[in-house]
Amino acid sequence: MGEAMLNSWHAWFGTFTGVAALTLLSLPVAAVTAAVLGWRRKAAGTASPWRLSFADVGMVHGTVPWVWMVLLPGEHPGVERGPLNLVPLRDLLEMDTGQVVGNLFIFAALGFFAPQRFAALASLPRVLALAGGWSALLEITQYLWLDRVSSVDDVLLNAAGAGLAALASRRWWRRPAELHEDTAVICRAG
Rank of each mutant, 00 (worst) to 15 (best):
G2M: 13
G2V: 12
E3C: 08
N7D: 15
W9I: 14
W12S: 05
W12N: 05
W12L: 11
F13H: 06
G18V: 15
A20V: 13
A21R: 12
L22K: 12
T23I: 13
S26F: 02
S26P: 01
L27Q: 13
P28N: 09
P28A: 07
V29R: 04
A30Y: 11
V32A: 15
T33R: 04
A34G: 06
A34F: 05
L37K: 11
R41G: 06
K42P: 06
K42S: 13
T46M: 13
T46E: 15
A47S: 14
S48Y: 15
F54G: 05
F54N: 04
A55D: 03
D56N: 14
V57E: 03
G58Y: 05
M59H: 06
M59Y: 07
H61G: 15
T63R: 02
V64S: 03
V64P: 01
P65K: 03
W68T: 02
W68Y: 03
W68A: 01
G74E: 04
H76G: 03
H76N: 07
H76R: 07
H76Q: 07
P77Y: 01
P77I: 01
G78S: 02
V79I: 14
V79K: 10
E80A: 12
R81H: 15
G82M: 02
P83H: 13
L89Y: 14
L93R: 12
L93G: 08
E94I: 12
M95A: 06
D96C: 11
D96R: 14
T97K: 08
G98T: 08
G98P: 04
G98F: 06
G98K: 05
Q99P: 04
V100K: 08
N103F: 05
N103S: 11
L104C: 11
F105H: 11
F105T: 11
F105R: 10
F105S: 10
I106A: 10
I106V: 15
I106T: 14
F107V: 07
A108V: 01
A109E: 00
L110P: 00
L110A: 00
A114S: 13
A114N: 06
P115N: 03
P115G: 03
F118T: 08
A119Q: 03
A120V: 15
S123I: 07
R126F: 04
R126C: 02
L128R: 01
A129H: 07
L130N: 09
L130H: 09
L130R: 08
G132N: 05
W134F: 15
L138F: 10
T141L: 01
T141A: 02
T141W: 00
Y143M: 00
L144Y: 00
W145Q: 00
R148H: 04
D153R: 00
D154G: 07
D154C: 10
L157H: 01
N158Q: 08
N158L: 06
N158A: 06
A162C: 10
A162F: 09
G163Q: 06
A165I: 10
L167A: 12
L167C: 11
A168C: 07
A168H: 05
A168Y: 05
R171V: 09
W173H: 02
R174M: 13
R175D: 12
P176N: 02
P176I: 04
P176W: 03
A177T: 09
A177H: 08
E178K: 04
H180I: 08
T183D: 10
